[in-house]
Structure formats: C-alpha cells, structure tokens
Amino acid sequence: MSTGTEDFDKLRKLLKLKRHEQPPPGYFSRFSGLVITRLEREGESDGVLTDVPWLRKLIRLFESSPVAAGLFGSAICALAIYGVTIANKTQGVAAVALAPANGVADANTVAFSTALHSDTLASSTDPVFGSSALASPFVANGSLTPRLENVTFSTSPR
C-alpha cells in the first residue's frame, strides 16, 4: 500500500479549501457565552434533582440511552394495564359476591351491581333528600357517631 504524498498532492491542495470555510463573523466571540448560559440554565433546572442523586442518575441514564428510557416507559405502561385489569376483575368479584345465593336479587343489590358496571353515574335533577332530611335524631351534630344512652324499664303490678 502506498501512502505517498505525491499521489494525492492535488487532492490535498483541494482539501485546503475547507480550511477557508468560516462561520458568520462574530460567531466565536458569542459561542462560549452561549455555552455558559446553557450550563447555568441547566444548573437551575437541575436544582431540585441535585437533592435526589438516584433520580439524577436515572435521568442521566435515560438521556444517554434511549433504549433504557423506552424499556422504562414500557414497564410503566405494562404496570398500568395490569393494574386496570386487576381492578376490573376485583369489581366483578364484588358484584358476584353481592348477588343473593338463591338468584333472586333485591332492588338494592341490583342497583348497586348496575352502578358498579356502568361507566356513568345515575343522576337525577330532583333531589331525593334535602339537607335537612339527612339530619337524624339518632346522630349527634350530623356525624355518624352512635349515641348510646341507658334506658330503664319498669313494670308496675296490676
């Protein structure tokens, strides 16, 4: 193999042309300023992350490796889908458990089961109860704390 300079003399002269390609005037006087500004801006935005080293490492890993970021995203999606599937199954089991054993459902069970399986909540423009109706003589101050009082019975002889 010959790498003699004379073989490529003209080519090397032609390649000198590339040395004359220069960026716009003043470009290099601004360049370092742009780099420092970007560094300072990134330093500010990273301020929160510096307190959490493992999170910072994780973000760096994702920045340097798109594959790792993709895998992490896929894992999160898979977990979310799994969670939704499990939740749906659990709701199905709850509805079955509420159904009476003899197959005759009372009105409350049917209503509850329907609400579980419907996407929208049933609503009415006519309120069934006013706020005053919620007040109960058995409930103190509107809370659901049961009130216990001693009661004595006496029987009088006839």
Binding site: K10, K13, L14, K16, L17, H20, E21, Q22, P23, P24
Partner: peptide, 18 residues
C-alpha cells in the same frame, strides 16, 4: 448548510491553480 469562504481563499495559490 455551508459556511462562506473567507477572503483568503481567493488568494490561495494552490486553489487558484485548481
């Protein structure tokens, strides 16, 4: 997106010869 050639390119004897 090429940069412009500087003024010296026109006077480079190697390039002028080419």
């Amino acid at each position: 997106s090429l940069n412009d050639l500087d003024f010296n390119a026109e006077h480079d004897p190697d390039l002028v010869a080419l």
